[in-house]
Design a protein around this nucleic acid. Sequence first.
DNA 1: GCGACAG
DNA 2: ATCTTGTCGC
Length: 262
Amino acid sequence: MNIMPTIEGNGDKRKRTVSFKAKEMEVDVTAYKDLGLAEATAVQNRLREKLDLSPLQRPVRVIAGADISLDLYSEVVYAGIVLLNYNDLQPFAYSLVKGRTSFPYVPGFLAFREIPAILEAFHQLPVKPDLIMFDGNGILHARRMGIASHFGVLTQTVTMGCAKKKLAGKFAEPGANKGDYSPVIDKNETIGYALRSKNNVKPIFISPGNAMSLTDSLAITMRCLGKYRLPEPTRQAHEFVNRFRTGALSEGYHEMVQMRLF
DNA sequence: GCGACAG
DNA sequence: ATCTTGTCGC
């Protein structure tokens, strides 16, 4: 039985509700703020049954980066998804949404804090990306349900995670050069990779979220590396939501004018 | 009990 | 996550 996403509009997009039903399961992101950790864990365990880690089925033409920005001690969240051409990694559109979160930051439960707002930004996109890279983990998680996997299963989309710090598992320090990597292992299972994204910098942690494999996540990330430690999708997303929070950008969906020097 | 602990 | 300048090292 497949998860059927149900989108209930109300004329007011800020009240839009998204719920998922699979077997006897139903998950409503608008209720995340009221969940306790035991309930949240139960949600993760049930979503995990729907995880798809098979190889990518479609070529990636449009890749996206998703992230949120916050003021310290504030419950206001500035969420955003940036769309980039996979070919040249240039951003060409972005969706920004200002929301609120009451779910606290608890390692292992980041999804319950950030997904509601990111989902709004996702709904605001007129055209969906082929893959979304999150600032966080995919299956590199104690219960294999990091924010990227959580969002992927919920929306039935292709997602992956790219974190700046290790959340779970063990790994041997990868080589010191860009491109060097080593597997992150937990309970005798490879759940991601520690990747040296740039010479002499701390490694970043890569893992598939949903609808793609461990190998895919590594290849995609390598292809997105530039002159910075973070891959372009995530780096750009962080830049956009930060400019949004500081007032340089406005809420909504925006397309960027592409000026080319042929 | 102790250490680890995405953003 | 966010607050911040200079500074050390590849």
